[in-house]
Design a protein around this nucleic acid. Structure first.
Lengths: 112, 112
DNA sequence: TCTATATTTCGATAATTGTCGAAGTATTGG
DNA sequence: CCAATACTTCGACAATTATCGAAATATAGA
């Protein structure tokens, strides 16, 4: 994963509403949350929420799927793990350290 | 750790030069790297580097100490772990998942 | 097809962030 | 005390990002 991609992900998370939205999505798991519900819960106008969700999607941190009239967003755990892996890379001068950030969607987790 | 603090940390890392500097510091470990050396390695003017290092310090991601005429910066591993913990919190809808991001300075790591 | 719902795109404006030279502040050695 | 070194702070300007109403797009149901 290259630096530019990581920076986009970090920028995406470095904003009040997006960080809050992302965390809700992370906790919601695979079922995800529709854009409108996120806007309501975070008390942000729909157009603003849409802007923020687009940033998260562009960063690869969330995926979207249409379901009837709603667009459901869900967190992409692999992307999050990628970012954290990048930050911890060579974290102790090359010496291996308890560096095993792994997080998979609820239903189908690997046996870590 | 509260959201505002996390946002400052993520903002600090979400910038080309700061991400690069931070990674150098992470790899350098406790000995750290003087401001000037970072500026030179990253090909950034001293005043710009200073600005960026101040951001990282303000976010609590790095610490600084004076050593003669130089100011040595080093990564604060605990802060990094705090940020990652925040991101993975309740990451699978409350179900525990391989969520053990830990990273300690080279010389004195815990037996994880 | 017409209307209501759900969301996005557009566009204009406000706010924040990045850049870097010049000047200022520590520290050391002569 | 003076000059050199290592950094930081200041200040001005450029660039990017956030906000949100209005208009556009997609879907579903009557």
């Amino acid at each position: 994963m290259k630096a530019d991609q990581i920076i986009r992900a970090l920028s995406a998370l470095a904003q009040e509403h997006r960080l809050a939205a992302y965390r809700l999505l992370v906790q919601a798991g695979e079922s995800g949350i529709p854009a409108g519900a996120l806007a309501e819960q975070l008390d942000v106008p729909p157009s603003s929420m849409s802007f923020h969700l687009a940033q998260l999607a562009n960063a690869g941190l969330v995926t979207q799927r249409r379901e009837s009239r709603s667009i459901i967003y869900s967190a992409d755990y692999a992307a999050m793990n990628g970012v954290m892996g990048y930050l911890t890379e060579n974290c102790c001068g090359g010496v291996p350290c308890g560096d095993s950030t792994a997080c998979l969607p609820d239903p189908q987790r690997k046996s870590a």
